[in-house]
C-alpha cells in the first residue's frame, strides 16, 4: 500500500514546496513562481488519478482495450489555461507595482505604504 501511494506523496511534497514559496518569499515574482509550482503539482495529482495500469492515451483505436481516464485530462487542460491566465495577470500587476513603488519586495512596499499613510 505504501508503494502504491508513494506517487501521491511526492506530489504532495512538491505542492507544499510551491505553497511554501508563495507564503514565505517576499519577492512578488517569486511568489507567482511558487504559485505556478503549487498549481502544477495539483495538476499532477489529478492526472495521476486518471492513470490506468497498462492503459494507453485515450485516443480510440482498433484493438486497444484499456485507456486511461480522459476526464482528469480535460479538467487539467482547463485548469492549466486558468493558471496561465492568472499568472499573466499577476505579472502585469507586478510590472505596474514596480512602476508605482519602484520595488517588488513585499516588505518594502508595505513600508512605503505605511509612510504615506
Amino acid at each position: 500500500m505504501l508503494v502504491s501511494l508513494f506517487n501521491y506523496w511526492i506530489v504532495i511534497v512538491l505542492m507544499m514546496m510551491g505553497f511554501y514559496i508563495v507564503i514565505s518569499h517576499s519577492n512578488l515574482i517569486k511568489k507567482l513562481l511558487g504559485l505556478s509550482i503549487f498549481q502544477a503539482s495539483v495538476f499532477i495529482m489529478y492526472i495521476s488519478m486518471g492513470k490506468v495500469e497498462g492503459g494507453t492515451a485515450p485516443i480510440l483505436e482498433e484493438g486497444i482495450k484499456t485507456y486511461s481516464n480522459p476526464l482528469p485530462h480535460v479538467l487539467i487542460l482547463t485548469a492549466i489555461v486558468v493558471g496561465i491566465a492568472t499568472v499573466a495577470l499577476g505579472l502585469a500587476l507586478v510590472v505596474r507595482i514596480h512602476e508605482a513603488y519602484g520595488t517588488i519586495e513585499e516588505n518594502e512596499i508595505q513600508e512605503k505604504d505605511n509612510k504615506s499613510c
Binding site: F43, S68, G83, I84, V87, A88, L91, I104
Partner: peptide, 29 residues
C-alpha cells in the same frame, strides 16, 4: 501518465509562455 494533450499544453504554456512572460517581467523591472 498517458495524458498527451495535457503534456502538449503544459509544454507550450508552462515551459513556453509563462517562462517568456516571467523573463519579460524581470527585464522590465
Amino acid at each position: 501518465m498517458d495524458a498527451v494533450d495535457v503534456a502538449f499544453t503544459e509544454a507550450a504554456v508552462g515551459a513556453g509562455i509563462s517562462t517568456i512572460l516571467m523573463l519579460a517581467t524581470t527585464s522590465l523591472i
